[in-house]
Structures are given as structure tokens and as C-alpha cells.
């Protein structure tokens, strides 16, 4: 059960043009593995939201997608400012994004709620000034 397939990505901070590249690549990789479309959609949307968060708030980070026999685990880790109040950050519509980010269509306060919505498990570990690690799990059955 400990055997898994790993996809690793460095997420470039402050770069909205390339934001989403890792998620689109994951989608392609999962499709090649022959996983069900709805699972692929869940994983890639959750990952995209996390990727965008890392670009907006944390100056980038690293993303790992581990494919196990019975589940997919997505780990997004950054060394950004951290989340002060996780419960508040999980509230739909709550956002700390700048006007510039909002003008691009982001910052609606739906990122973390969407990540929770599209995954079966989600944990957030965050320390102000140190960074944030989000672990999400999507079951394959």
C-alpha cells in the first residue's frame, strides 16, 4: 500500500501567466493513467485553487501529487506568510487578495472552500511567518 506514483512541481510565485501549469500537467498525467474523468476534475480543480493561492499569497511553493491504489494525495507546501485564522479563511467569500489580483478574476474567497468541496479530506497546517502546508485526499472508490 505504500507504493505510489509521485508528480512533483515547483510553483513559480507572482507569475499569473504560468499559474495553473502544474494543475494542467497533473490533469494530463491522470488522464494517461486512465482515471475516471470526475476524479481527474476534482483533483485538478482542487490543485489549481491551491496553486493560485500559492502564487497570490505565498510567493510560490512546491506541489506533490501522489497516486496510490485507492486514493490521490495532494500536498501543497509554501513558506509564505501563513494563515492567521484558518476558520475565517475557510469562509466562502472571505478574501485578503489585492485589487490587482481581483481584476484578474481571482480573490473571490472561494479557493479554500472549493478545495474542501472537491476533496474527501483536507487538512491545513499553518504558522504565521513560517508557511502553510495543505494536504488533500481524493478517494478512488
Amino acid at each position: 500500500m505504500s507504493e505510489f506514483l509521485n508528480f512533483h512541481f515547483d510553483v513559480d510565485g507572482e507569475n499569473f501567466v504560468s499559474a495553473g501549469q502544474a494543475s494542467v500537467q497533473v490533469k494530463k498525467n491522470l488522464r494517461e493513467l486512465g482515471l475516471p474523468p470526475e476524479i481527474i476534475r476534482q483533483v485538478s480543480i482542487a490543485m489549481y485553487e491551491g496553486e493560485i493561492n500559492m502564487v497570490i499569497h505565498a510567493g510560490g511553493g512546491v506541489a506533490d501529487v501522489n497516486v496510490y491504489e485507492d486514493r490521490i494525495v495532494i500536498i501543497l507546501a509554501d513558506t509564505g506568510p501563513g494563515i492567521k485564522d484558518i476558520e475565517l479563511a475557510m469562509t466562502e467569500g472571505y478574501s485578503t487578495a489585492t485589487d490587482n489580483v481581483r481584476s484578474l478574476g481571482f480573490g473571490a474567497g472561494m479557493g479554500l472552500p472549493n478545495m474542501k468541496r472537491y476533496t474527501d479530506e483536507m487538512t491545513i497546517e499553518s504558522e504565521v511567518g513560517k508557511g502553510t502546508t495543505i494536504t488533500m485526499c481524493v478517494y478512488l472508490k
Binding site: R41, E49, A108, R117, Y118
Partner: peptide
């Protein structure tokens, strides 16, 4: 709003928007 679209649009929908970035 891109996250709203991500969260609510369904597969095979036509997505109507004025966002073009």
C-alpha cells in the same frame, strides 16, 4: 470570478464570460 466558475460550472458547459486573460 474564476473560482466561482471552477466551483460551479459543470463538465461540457458553455462558459459565458467577459474575462479574457
Amino acid at each position: 470570478l474564476l473560482s466561482w466558475v471552477m466551483g460551479r460550472a459543470s463538465q461540457d458547459n458553455a462558459w459565458i464570460t467577459i474575462m479574457s486573460n
